[in-house]
Design a protein around this nucleic acid. Structure first.
Lengths: 341, 341
DNA sequence: ACTTTAAATGTAAACCTTTACATTCATCCA
DNA sequence: TGGATGAATGTAAAGGTTTACATTTAAAGT
């Protein structure tokens, strides 16, 4: 039988209202100093815990922020989500808010989250979701303040946070250009990936600014897949054996290229230079020399969490933030690019 | 203004009790088929979500299982916890239970969890905790069914799950012995690590069974640290340049050894054979050839979650499970051990 | 001394469900 | 026909907080 506020009140010789006031920071000032001390002693003595369900019910708030990620078996092994969780968790630490991970199958967001079992949260951080979903349709149904990471949608009440991938692509291009590379190829992701399109666009714009062209046949789509990247590499050197550098739009694909290099007894950067994207620790730990464009996922998650927090603490009296924010990326130079020609 | 059960009841022309019965699987049978259909239509039409706080309050249950892990900034980057989260998450999927991650500073377990903010859960999975804590003291205060992973305590009402590390150590020894290795060294963790003691014990017992001895100066403690393992390797080959194999009690430390090998222009397994422990993907991805003893952390977490689930569903009418369970480990053979002699 | 003001505490409603118990109504059996 | 049975639904209490509003008490101002 769990001890309730009534027992404490009885023992302290006061009413439950006073106990409640003594427990909550914003009302603590109302209670007389010695009463407060007496109550605090009892609270620790009986290790009393206010019933969260009752509190939540009364306050119509769960003090919980949901983090929605697409569900797949190995979700927790993906470093992208590690950064997200880590950033959210650290930002929420000490704020009085918890986070709850909602790893949902595609199609379940609405059914599962809001209807079927009715998990409830005060705010939502959604990441990499629209690949599976009409973002607009889903977001319009969500009633709590929402931050979307790495996806975008127009005319919807939510905050959007992403990386500045156009600049990222440009950085990769600049890095290769200033080291003398002129014959290059790009391995990109699937067509639907906005991020990859931006990366390639950035690369191309820099290239164009130098008076060079990046033709369509120098850009190969490898669907984010390791093995397709390996095949793409074969394709690239077959078409142009003189190619000196490859820009890969994700480190996963860069990893495929590097592995294939080893198989072909080629060395990076001796025989071919490579720039990756994401600064993915899983790949970097295997190829510690890979230069890559770092995406501040951790900071994005921090920003998402603090944005929601701020909004919730502002008593909801202003309408929820709109707009999008692009955080700067940066190139981490290691040793996979050789200075040439 | 969120829609409540009253609105639905009004629209359906029935009482709230009937709505509630229609919503809950175990009472659904009581309501007449056409009433049920009418109600269901309204539920979907208004995307009604029962208020979880009210439900939890009434049922005195949160349908949430807490996963307690020691907090540190990079908690989410540790593959050990990835396996835990993944195993728990997958087991709970579809059970109606959620999990909540409680990453707590050492010292906070009781203060934070049960007193200060009063998170509440129906059950608890605690992992790698006793390093910081008197397990007994903490467990006695916890009132919900608890499973402890990778730690043990006598005479406490909880279930304990771990890996069979004595066998693991034995496997490592057998692997080296049957490939001809006789001059070996062991790099172990700090003294307080029960797991490491067991691993060494297992190794030693196999070695003894072959009539060989493993003296104290062949076993070096490197505190789980990469750089200490590197130093230990120097120490080992200085003392006995003829050593042919090293058993490292964690892959982290094996990683240190392998890195030091590279620095010294030695090759594994050409010049030295290494067996690791944990099958830690972070290390394996960097040294894909490392043979290592795999610990079924994922399965341990599954077992923990399903144990609690089972107990909770059994209506709490039997006392909570006691006892400990050791899951079998297995050696994953790769290419870091050479056949010799 | 009497009124005002402020500080401290108390009272009771509200938050939204679930469920034990009560009620209604139709059916069936003697 | 009358009473028992069972199915479907309703009524109302309970669960543990927070908080608007009411009350008490003491201090201050006139």
């Amino acid at each position: 039988m769990k001890i309730t506020i009534f027992e404490i009140a009885k023992k302290a010789g006061v009413s439950i209202a006073t106990i409640s006031r003594a427990m909550n920071p914003h009302t603590r000032g109302m209670v007389a100093p010695d009463t407060l001390k007496r109550i605090n002693n009892l609270l620790t003595k009986y290790t009393y815990t206010p019933n969260l369900a009752a509190r939540n019910l009364r306050q119509a708030s769960t003090r919980t922020i949901g983090v929605v990620v697409p569900f797949y078996r190995d979700i927790f092994y993906n470093s992208y989500y590690m950064h997200i969780l880590s950033g959210v968790s650290n930002t929420l630490e000490g704020s009085g808010y918890q986070f709850k991970l909602l790893a949902l199958d595609q199609g379940q967001l609405w059914d599962h989250y809001d209807f079927r079992s009715g998990e409830q949260v005060d705010g939502l951080i959604v990441s990499l979701w629209f690949r599976f979903f009409s973002g607009k349709e889903v977001l319009e149904k969500i009633k709590v303040p929402t931050v979307v990471i790495d996806d975008f949608e127009k005319d919807v009440k939510a905050m959007f946070i992403g990386g500045d991938h156009v600049s990222g692509g440009r950085m990769a291009a600049e890095h290769l250009y200033t080291r003398g590379h002129r014959r290059v190829a790009v391995i990109t992701g699937p067509d639907w990936s906005r991020d990859c399109r931006q990366r390639v666009d950035g690369f191309r714009s820099y290239w164009a600014a130098q008076g060079l062209s990046l033709d369509q046949d120098q850009v190969i789509a490898a669907d984010f897949l390791h093995h397709k990247a390996k095949a793409s590499f074969d394709q690239i050197i077959k078409k142009d054996p003189e190619v000196t550098a490859i820009f890969c739009c994700t480190d996963i694909m860069a990893g495929g290229v590097l592995e294939r290099c080893q198989e072909l007894n080629m060395a990076c950067p001796r025989d071919i230079s490579v720039v990756g994207y994401d600064d993915d620790m899983k790949i970097i730990s295997r190829f510690p020399y890979l230069s890559s464009v770092h995406v501040p996922v951790y900071e994005m998650a921090q920003k998402a969490a603090s944005g929601i927090l701020e909004h919730l603490k502002s008593k909801r009296n202003k309408k929820f933030f709109n707009g999008t924010e692009f955080l700067p990326v940066r190139l981490v130079e290691r040793q996979s690019v050789k200075t040439t020609g």
